Amino acid sequence: MDVRLSAVDVAGKDAGVPWQDEWLTLRQPPIASSADIADVRAVPDGNGLTVLQIRYRPEVHRRIHDGTAALVGQRIAISVDGRVVTVATVQGPFSESMGLSGLPGKDEARELARHITGK
């Protein structure tokens, strides 16, 4: 299983992947990968929806913070096994964790968490 947090390259210089009705080019190397993940859980968001909460290992917090701080206002993509599952605009830097929203339902969020963790 391969999970990546990658910047979307608007100049289209690196490898591309499909996302909804567009072709995205994702920058290499990714900001974070599977090895950086400490925990993944499907959690309620308080609005009746389910969010996939991804918590990163403490030793990578600074790298993820710096990587996302440089991307405020730009798009990032989360991909699992080469399939983009969501694209978002970075509103501000993050480091310890991120919430993946916009999934069709709680069953898909739980299944994705099981797939990522193997549990």
Rank of each mutant, 00 (worst) to 15 (best):
E96T: 08
L103F: 01
Q20P: 01
A88S: 14
P18N: 11
Q53G: 07
P93M: 03
R62C: 02
R63N: 08
D9N: 12
G67D: 03
G73T: 10
K119A: 13
L5V: 12
R27T: 15
P58S: 12
D39M: 08
R75P: 02
L26Q: 03
G16H: 10
L26T: 03
T89M: 09
A11P: 00
A42Q: 05
R110K: 12
P44Y: 00
I76V: 14
G16N: 07
D107A: 14
D45E: 06
P29L: 07
D66V: 05
R62F: 03
P18V: 09
T89N: 02
I37M: 06
V72M: 06
Y56S: 02
V8C: 06
A70K: 11
V80I: 12
P93L: 03
V60T: 11
V84P: 07
P29W: 02
A15E: 13
A70F: 03
S101Y: 04
D81K: 00
A109R: 05
D14E: 11
D2W: 04
R114G: 06
A70D: 10
Q53W: 12
P93R: 06
S6E: 11
I78L: 15
T25Y: 15
G67T: 00
S34C: 00
I54K: 07
A42P: 09
D39A: 12
I76T: 03
N47H: 10
I64Y: 00
E22H: 01
V80Y: 06
A88F: 11
G118A: 11
G16R: 14
T117W: 05
I37W: 01
S33M: 07
E108Y: 09
R57Q: 13
A69Q: 14
T50A: 13
F94C: 05
R83C: 05
V43P: 09
A11S: 13
R110I: 11
R110E: 15
L5G: 10
G92Y: 03
S95F: 01
R41I: 01
H61R: 10
Q91F: 00
R83L: 10
D66R: 08
V84C: 08
D2G: 00
V51N: 12
V72P: 05
L71H: 04
R27V: 13
Q74I: 06
V40Y: 06
R62G: 08
L103A: 03
I76F: 02
I37E: 05
L112N: 10
K106D: 10
G92P: 00
D45S: 10
Q28D: 13
A69D: 13
V60C: 01
R110Q: 13
P44H: 00
E108M: 13
A69G: 11
S79R: 09
L26A: 03
L5K: 06
T89Y: 00
S95V: 01
V85Y: 11
D39K: 12
M1Y: 04
V17K: 14
T50V: 09
H65I: 02
D39C: 01
R75E: 08
G67M: 04
K106W: 00
A88Q: 13
L26D: 04
D21Q: 10
R110G: 09
A7H: 12
D14G: 05
I76M: 11
R4Y: 07
E111N: 12
A15C: 02
T86L: 13
V87R: 07
T25Q: 13
V85I: 15
Q53M: 14
S34T: 15
K119G: 12
H115A: 09
